[in-house]
Each structure stands twice: as structure tokens, then as C-alpha cells.
Design a protein around this nucleic acid. Structure first.
Lengths: 201, 201
DNA sequence: CAATATACTGTATATAATTACAGTAATAAT
DNA sequence: ATTATTACTGTAATTATATACAGTATATTG
């Protein structure tokens, strides 16, 4: 997707906030009024440019017919079973999506991962729970991370992180620490856990 | 709030599904077309009736200016500290609200309750977690319930439920079962836990 | 029994809104 | 150097939309 100019982004934000304020998109005249344009055609042409770049689509003939593209809806993917090889966010891994909402959870969640197994029960993470994962938050020792060891995805507490040695701890007395030598086994830290959803109790 | 007639409810649902499908409300003509009215005025008059009953408001002069009333937005309240006396859902107890979304959690959640204390850690319910509570689901023994004992709100597993004796179990080895005689202590089962959200890990 | 609410048809009109056409001017890309 | 993009003004026409007015008919309420 191409990038918007400053002005185009301003208009896209105006559309979003109008929808959030009123429940429906603005008209060309609304946009012109808000930004001080003397002609509604200025808004029209901006909208066409934003549409061309794929951020919105415009339903012809319909008043207020501005539809935000899916990428604008900002839905968070839920990752179920991760297929071996390929990126974790690949489409075939996406079980469903959940809308990002202002008052729910931190805004930094990049995806949810459905937990398999009972290796983290001692910190209250159960099988089938959805953990909210942030890719940005750089993993610190002591934090719960999503790691990929030789294409196997796992959730563990990060205990030690060096170039020669990585230690991951299951939070369950029945399991013992996992020691990895990154030069032998392929290891990727996909992100840190920042939230949790249990859909049924 | 007054109750809608069958037809009015049909129209309100049409409005909601139009918003969900297109991102903006329908016009009078849209409504008339969908329901087979031969006059847009039929839609207009239904809208006025629905507005009068408080379910929507109509912005005059604006196209598609149908705004769902707050009650229609279907936000789930988050209950923080519960003030002694009065209903649990009283406004002063509401910390914030969370939009109900199709793909997230069961639709039967009536409110979220912020957990205080560590009495349920063994079933993965931690302090500050939000538990989704359903009032409808009638409490069975073995299920986790929100109970009110003499105006104190607590989350426990329901073990026994008779007219003469109620047993609530904390899921934490450090605590012991609570036995209540409903003829001595005031007891209200507010609902059952059906979901959980942990906003920070 | 009259008044009010429900549930429409049918017509009409003012205004809201999209959208085309004709320009101007500065900047970025090929 | 020319073309495309960005960022607008200004005008105007067509269509989309809200909304008023005049009816008809049935059901419900006071």
C-alpha cells in the first residue's frame, strides 16, 4: 500500500473521527468546511487520491459513501495452529480477527495466539487462552515471550538471552527449563505477551 | 425505555446491519426498498416512532443522519469497586465500558468485574483480571460465580446450593471454604463467570 | 366512543450531496 | 523538458435524500 501525503492523512483521520463522533462518514462539504476549503471539489479530489492509494473506497451515487478499507478497520488477527515454515502472521494461520477497541487492552497488540498445552498454568495462562502479543516491545529477561524454535511456536518466560545461550522457562513445576544454543537451533523471538483473553471458563 | 413493535424492531435491526455492512446508516429509500415499502415516507414515520421511543436520534437535514442511542451501542460495563448497598450495575460502580464485538467472547456477557484478591489463582484468575459475568446462565454447582454476601462482592466456585446451606470455595490452597446460611446472611448470586480478560501481563 | 398509535400508499418539494468541468499553481517523477 | 501528482478555487448540474402534506385502514388505549 502506497503512503499518504500529510494532507491526505489529515483527511483520512478526519473521516475516522467523523465516523467515531457521528456514526457515519462526512460529506465533501463537511470535509471542506472542517479544513477551510472554499470548494467541496477540493475534498472530492483528495478522496479520489486516497481511494487510488487503497485506503478507502467510494461508493458512487451514495451520499456519505466512503468506506474504510479493511486495513483501516484495524482488526487484530488471532493465530491458531502455526504452519511449519513461513511467517507466523501468514493468512493460513489466521483463525479469525478481533476488532481493536479503545477501551480494551493495550493498543500495542500485533496479534493474538491461541495457547496450546499447559506449560504456563502457574502464571495463569491456560490451554486455549488467547495471548495478546506485541512485536514491538523488545523482550526482556523475566517477560513472557512467544518464541519459535526450529519452526515450533511456544510461549515461555525468557530467563536468559545471550548470543551463545538462551534459556526459556515453562511456568509449570512438571516441566524444566529449555536451553537453546542459537548457533545450533534456529530461534526467533516473535514478541512479548502483553494481554490475555479467555473466551470460555 | 419503551418497547418497540415487531416492525420497528425489524427496522432497527436493518439499520444496525446496514451500518455493519456499509459503515453508514441507510436512507429512507434504502429502508423502504429492503422491506418492500412503496413509499419512503413509511420508513420516515417508522424512524420517527423509533426516535420517540428513544432508540435512535435523527439529525435533521443530514443525509443518513440516524444515530443509534447509547443503549443501542451495546457496550459492556466494567465494574470496579462495588459500593456497599445498591445494585452492582449502578452507574457509580462502572469504571469504563467495552464494546461488544462479534468475534470476541460469548455474547452473553452482562458485565465485567475487576477481580480483587488472589482467592482464585488456582483456576488462573488473578488480581486485576476482568471476568465476564453472565446473569442469565443459572449457576450450577462447580461453576465459578459472582456472589454477594452481606453486600460484599466475591468470586468463588459454587460447591453446594441449598435453601439451608451454601458453600463457596476459593480456588487457592491458602483459603478454606465459605459456608453460608442464607437465613442468617444475605446472599445473592449475581451471575456466572463465562470469560476473562487480562489487560496487562 | 373518541383519541392515539401502528402501518402503510402516493405525491411533491426543498435541500443535501455527488460529481463533472474549467481553471491556477507548486512540486515531484520520468 | 514533459508529464503526473499535489493542492487547491469556482461554478454548476444532476441526482440523492429528507421531509412535509394528504390520505386509508386497523388496532389499542383511555
Amino acid at each position: 500500500m502506497k503512503t499518504l501525503t500529510k494532507r491526505q492523512e489529515e483527511i483520512l483521520n478526519l473521516i475516522k473521527s467523523h465516523i467515531s463522533d457521528f456514526g457515519f462518514p462526512p460529506t465533501r462539504a463537511d470535509i471542506a468546511r472542517t479544513l477551510g476549503f472554499k470548494s467541496p471539489n477540493a475534498a472530492e479530489q483528495h478522496l479520489r487520491a486516497i481511494e487510488k492509494k487503497g485506503f478507502i473506497s467510494i461508493l458512487s451515487g451514495a451520499s456519505r459513501g466512503i468506506v474504510l478499507s479493511n486495513a483501516q478497520n484495524d482488526e487484530i488477527p488471532v493465530i491458531g495452529l502455526v504452519a511449519a515454515g513461513g511467517p507466523i502472521l501468514a493468512e493460513e494461520n489466521v483463525e479469525k480477527t478481533i476488532p481493536r477497541s479503545k477501551n480494551l487492552l493495550s493498543s500495542e497488540i500485533d496479534f493474538y495466539l491461541r495457547v496450546k498445552g499447559d506449560s504456563m498454568v502457574d502464571v495463569g495462562i491456560f490451554e486455549e487462552d488467547l495471548i495478546g502479543v506485541s512485536k514491538k516491545t523488545n523482550p526482556k529477561t523475566g517477560s513472557i515471550v512467544v518464541a519459535r524454535i526450529n519452526n515450533e511456536v511456544t510461549v515461555k518466560t525468557l530467563i536468559e538471552l545471550n548470543q551463545s545461550k538462551v534459556v526459556l522457562r515453562p511456568e509449570n513445576q512438571n516441566y524444566s527449563d529449555i536451553e537453546i544454543n542459537p548457533s545450533v537451533d534456529e530461534l526467533v523471538i516473535e514478541g512479548s505477551c502483553v494481554a490475555l483473553i479467555r473466551e470460555s471458563i
